[in-house]
Design a protein around this nucleic acid. Structure first.
Lengths: 207, 207
DNA sequence: GTGTGTGAAGGGTTTCACAGCA
DNA sequence: TGCTGTGAAACCCTTCACACAC
């Protein structure tokens, strides 16, 4: 398969969400123009993105909302249930256990861990916080595929290494450093500080 | 001033964090190679990014960590204290009030609001949750410049409109829809679902 | 010698514009 | 007629490679 850019994938994810909205409103058909409008981009971009994966629309008409959502879900791998673990039961970790968008799309949190023995044993959404002392065993036992890192910077790379060693294939990192990983392991860094600093820059320099 | 790309700004934000780390370790000098290594990019990229704003290094030597951090902070507008409000006192809203990376860089949360009267009056980190009924007055009184939206999708655009109407100039949106705003208002959408779905795609298609 | 600063080259992504089909 | 699908053009961003300063 042709190599698809990260930005195309991120937009597909947006289309998916917009289609959900349209379906909730009982809309059967949508044009690339409408989708573009909802996501703040151009219609050519929408059509180009979709064209990498096939032809889903009808000329003169548009796309069937349910069918297109289904197909994008398939492309993104959302038809599968993913087994997720969260490391770090602080504010971010806790917020994510409860995050509805995850569950809705088949990302199931099966494990939450923390190194703080004061937190171990606590219950969050019916899930007991486990100790990171047993990270490798727990990850393997629970057959975790995707791990979320929500620990302080200093610990993040070490935790990532242990996770990868235990067989985790993808990491979503909330610590404000770049996680290093070998080829074949997927890593995404989510850093809210970067977003707000970008706002600060644009406010300062063109506001 | 020449137009600078979003990606350059986001990288500056990373360099800033890496420089903080280096300074904490008492490192005085850093080369573009080392910075690149820390952030997982190329040294040419580092030098090019910096060159848009001036010449900060010494040939044959590298960059002074403290001076460079200072200058990047200046570029990003971090020398100023920004007045921030959070709308939505759910899990994400609560996590952000406590978010150390914000405070450290001068983003001060002065106001948190929620529409749920059960939450109004609660105290989070010494801040009392206010009712969104008085959003315009509160935003104006507190002279809020940056607002963070952490409410459900359905309410997000309405809240954004009220915020902009009340004079907010930048919005960081955590609701999983694209906020629409006129020219001149800065908006960043942060959507963790997109990140994890990108992981899902790459796991499914090249794992 | 070492590592920056930068024009030029290269690669990739977005936009244009239109043929083609419902 | 209306809107998709798509080569080609335009644009932007990254990488190369080297002169130059320390």
């Amino acid at each position: 398969m042709k190599k698809i850019s990260e930005s195309t994938i991120r937009r597909l994810s947006k289309y998916y969400r917009s289609l959900e909205q349209l379906i909730a409103r009982n809309t059967d058909t949508v044009s690339s123009d409408q989708l573009a409008e909802m996501d703040g981009i151009t219609s050519a971009q929408v059509r180009k993105d979709l064209s990498f994966f096939g032809t889903f629309g009808k000329r003169g008409l548009g796309y069937n909302t349910r069918a297109l959502k289904e197909q994008i879900g398939e492309i993104l791998g959302l038809s599968k249930e993913w087994r997720v673990a969260i490391v770090g039961a602080g504010n971010i970790g806790k917020a994510l256990v409860n995050y509805g968008e995850f569950r809705k799309q088949g990302f199931q949190v099966h494990l939450i861990m923390d190194s703080d023995h004061g937190k171990v044993g606590q219950t969050i959404q019916g899930l007991t916080v486990e100790s990171t002392d047993h990270l490798p065993q727990l990850i393997k036992k629970q057959r975790i595929e995707i791990a979320i890192i929500a620990v302080p910077s200093e610990a993040a790379q070490r935790v990532a290494d242990e996770l990868m060693e235990a067989g985790v294939k993808a990491i979503l990192n909330f610590a404000p450093i770049s996680i290093k990983a070998p080829e074949g392991i997927q890593v995404k860094n989510e850093n809210t500080a970067i977003e707000i600093e970008a706002l600060s820059y644009f406010l300062t320099n063109q506001g």
